[in-house]
């Protein structure tokens, strides 16, 4: 178990790169997760075939700990669930809004 690590490719203390497989995660979920980190980090996304790579650079030049990336991974799972639920059932929200404003659309 000691050898199991998050797939982090550390470039420099205040920069790191992490990659995700588009077969597992949607582009929308990845970008939505990135947005949450744009307060503390400059973030660049690039895509090659089925892999999205994300480059983090801390704005205050401090070192990035592995915990940040682990949290990013967990947040990405949440974001993917939101994306999937919205994909499957989001149309119901449209129906609710349409129904709600029916009286003024008559």
């Amino acid at each position: 178990m000691a050898n199991l690590e998050f797939p982090i490719n550390v470039i420099d203390g205040n920069k790191l790169k992490i990659s995700f497989d588009l077969k597992l995660y949607s582009k929308e979920a990845i970008t939505a997760t990135c947005y949450k980190y744009t307060g503390k980090y400059y973030i660049h996304e690039s895509c090659e075939e089925n892999t999205v790579s994300i480059l983090f650079e801390s704005k205050d030049k401090s070192d990035i700990s592995q915990t940040v990336v682990k949290e990013f991974c967990n947040n990405l799972i949440d974001q993917e669930i939101r994306h999937n639920i919205n994909k499957d059932f989001g149309y119901i929200r449209d129906l609710i809004v349409e129904e709600a404003f029916k009286p003024v659309n008559k």
């Binding site: 119901i92 809004v97 709600a100």
Partner: peptide, 17 residues
């Protein structure tokens, strides 16, 4: 039936707004 729940939610949504 989703349609029935949508009607109920729509009424509440309209109240909220």
């Amino acid at each position: 039936k989703v349609e029935d729940v949508v009607k109920m939610l729509a009424t509440k949504f309209r109240t909220k707004k």
